[in-house]
Design a protein around this nucleic acid. Structure first.
Length: 107
DNA sequence: CAACCGGCCTGGA
DNA sequence: CTCCAGGCCGGTT
């Protein structure tokens, strides 16, 4: 059993930003990265995967910049179910009304 | 230092 | 417009 590595500052920062995303909304890896002050959108994905508490950090609300689902540790099906439970509909692997659901007004 | 990522962008078919 | 392939940045391990 590998023990959970301590989250770095960057990771914590991303988590905090993600928690600002209200239910029923989604954000993108890039938006989080830029809000964190960097362009490491891939690092964001890594942080999401390493996310210790999926309930606290709604990593399922993070999608790709083009409205596609992106990845998910539990599988895409899981992600869709989570989003759907929050009122975000997904069809053909893409967020419906993505642009309207997108939240990137981080502060 | 090298490899790994839950991505993004661009170009071509 | 959609789909595929390659190249790329930045952070973590």
């Amino acid at each position: 059993m590998s023990r959970a590595s301590q989250p770095t500052q960057f990771t914590e920062n991303v988590y905090q930003l993600l928690r600002q995303v209200p239910t029923g909304r989604v954000t993108t890896y890039q938006a989080l990265a830029e809000a964190a002050g960097t362009r490491a959108y891939r690092a964001v994905g890594q942080a999401m995967r390493r996310n210790p508490d999926t309930q606290r950090t709604p990593c399922h609300r993070v999608v790709a910049s083009d409205g596609s689902l992106g990845g998910y540790a539990g599988g895409p099906k899981r992600k869709i179910a989570c989003l759907r439970a929050e009122g975000v509909l997904v069809q053909a692997g893409r967020i419906i009304n993505f642009r309207d659901r997108l939240y990137s007004d981080f502060r």
